[in-house]
Design a protein around this nucleic acid. Structure first.
Length: 514
RNA sequence: CGGGGAGUGGCGCAGCCAGGUAGCGCACCUGUUUUGGGUACAGGGGGUCGGAGGUUCGAAUCCUCUCUCCCCGACCA
């Protein structure tokens, strides 16, 4: 318990924001770059992102969506077309105005005034406009629909305040863009993407989420409907982990995406867009991290098993390494969670004990220590990252098991870890959603008295619009609260609106958010 | 972008108020010791003190400007 000596210097309960940063650096995920709001993603962090990409990409392709790549630069005129979109993004755009540098005469360089672009290019904050432009050329007939595209790319949004992975000026993501003949088809796609995100994030990243529709004030600029999956972090705040938008015909009208229907008349397409980003890595940290660093769920772990030979700089090391290599090959032949087990034999020089703590902080699901005596006895010393400590003794809960038993059970073990991480997170999430609050003062009181771990509150409302909604948003803002979403498939409303006192029409989740 | 805080070897910090030419812990390297393990001891390497300009005989320390990061707010994935 208290005698446990943790691998990090900051504990979650002491200072969650500081702890988060320490995990990012201690787990070797990323570091500051010196460029405002931009980060360098290091091998372990990028490896996790690559796993997410891989699993998400498989799901995207299974749905019949094709990958493409569009330019990072968007002509200003192109970007200007959709009014709400412009209004939403204009204030956070990076703009390219010159194409050449010249010496400033003081040993430095400045943009060449002679090389000013006739029309500035904006760095994409998202690609609806430029992809819409292509769609207008690619779609002619109802036979061309649906057109379903995706791209993996970087985007730039000039953020006021940034946080590693959660909100950076440049981030990596996937953006799906589809065009359909009818509203029904586009809505179906919007929900299909949302469900795909729910499944990927819950099953692969082990982050329990609540899928639902965003209220009007939280909609994507230019969307008719915005849906999200919301995950609860360990400090009780909500993290939007993925969004899916039904764009109506707004972008189709702006970009002139039309098709000729079976009757020969021109119709505007109904489009959708949906995205998930490197923010998911931040969600992984704030959901599965503990006071010893990160815990990576096996499905997204670049390496699921780390073999650490206890090398002693002696001739016997060769035999031990051969034994470990044999162990590695044996494990790699097994399947876990539908894929070959990913094993790393860490032969890097250095003390095994120091390397063990490095892997603990990084969150490799299983660490195997193999010394000469293990080799002799045919055993391995196995450490499960998700249940690291023996809380009674305050020591690591290392298990000495027979090598053969361990190898044949690896698939089941990794599955157990994946499941238990998800269960731990979803139990915590469920325990911290409070339902049945009917008075606004109780909501205020709730957040006053649960400052450390606010959690979420479900309330009923009358779904006001326009200025009435603005008033509600102001009221929430005063308590640092936001409406997360209207959970999909929740019970119908049966009370009165907590804000207006009118008859309630639906249930919403209220929370503090990242 | 407003308010507050901070940038000193890889990490965490002291020194700055009362200018004199850089220090501690961890990590790292070498050696010895130890060997079911976050070992111990000894020796050693590494920093133009975020950057630029200024004051001064002399600046990590004082002044000006600037960049970056953190916290709070406004904005947002």
């Amino acid at each position: 318990m208290s005698n446990i000596r943790h691998a990090l210097n900051v504990k979650r309960e002491e200072d969650f924001a500081k702890w988060y940063q320490e995990v990012i650096s201690a787990a070797d995920l990323a570091e500051e770059s010196g460029v405002r709001g931009c980060m360098v993603i290091k091998p372990w962090g990028y490896g996790i992102w690559e796993r997410i990409q891989r699993l998400m990409d498989d799901r995207i392709k299974q749905a019949g969506v094709q990958n493409t790549y569009f330019p990072i630069f968007i002509p200003l005129a192109n970007f200007e077309r959709e009014a709400a979109h412009v209004e939403g993004f204009a204030k956070e755009m990076a703009v390219v105005t010159h194409h050449r540098l010249i010496a400033d005469g003081k040993g430095g360089l400045i943009p060449d005034p002679e090389a000013k672009l006739e029309e500035p290019l904006v760095v994409r904050p998202t690609s609806e406009t430029i992809i819409g432009d292509a769609m207008s050329r690619w779609v002619q007939s109802w036979r061309d629909l649906p057109l379903m595209l995706n791209q993996w790319a970087n985007v730039v949004r000039w953020e006021m305040r940034t946080r590693m992975f959660l909100r950076t000026s440049e981030f990596l993501w996937q953006e799906g863009h589809t065009a359909h003949a009818t509203r029904e088809d586009a809505l179906e796609e919007t929900h299909r993407a949302l469900e795909m995100y729910r499944a990927c994030v819950e099953e692969d990243l082990a982050l329990p989420v609540i899928a639902g529709e965003k209220p009007e004030n939280e909609r994507f600029p230019g969307a008719d409907e915005t849906w999200s999956i919301e995950a609860m972090m360990q400090d009780g705040k909500a993290l939007q982990a993925g969004t899916s938008h039904y764009l109506g015909t707004n972008f189709a009208q702006a970009a002139n995406i039309q098709y000729q229907d079976r009757e020969g008349t021109q119709q505007h397409c109904h489009t959708t867009s949906w995205g998930t980003s490197t923010r998911l890595v931040g969600g992984l940290v704030m959901t599965h991290g503990d006071d010893d660093g990160l815990r990576v769920p096996p499905r997204v772990a670049p390496h699921q098993v780390i073999i650490l030979p206890i090398l002693r700089d002696k001739p016997e090391d060769d035999a031990l390494l051969a034994y470990c290599e044999d162990l590695r090959a044996g494990l790699a032949k097994h399947q876990a969670l539908g894929e070959p087990v990913r094993v790393l034999l860490d032969k890097m020089p250095g003390k095994a004990s120091a390397k063990r703590w490095d892997w603990v902080r990084k969150g490799a699901p299983i660490i195997l220590e193999v010394g000469p005596r293990d080799m002799e006895n045919g055993k391995v010393a196995a450490i499960r990252r998700d249940t690291l400590w023996n809380t009674e003794s305050g020591k690591l809960a290392t298990e000495f098991v027979s090598r053969d038993v361990f190898v044949s059970g690896i698939g089941q073990l990794l599955e157990d870890i994946q499941d238990s991480l998800f269960r731990e997170a979803s139990d915590r999430r469920d325990a911290n959603i409070t339902r049945g609050v009917t008075e606004w003062k109780d909501v205020v009181q709730f957040y006053k008295s649960n400052g450390k771990y606010p959690g979420w509150v479900e309330v009923q409302w009358s779904k006001p619009t326009g200025s009435a909604l603005e008033k509600v948003v102001e009221q929430l803002k005063a308590e640092k609260l936001t409406i997360r979403n209207v959970p999909r498939g929740s019970e119908p409303a049966d009370g009165v609106c907590i804000f207006t006192g009118e008859k309630a029409v639906e249930r919403i989740l209220v929370a503090r958010a990242y």
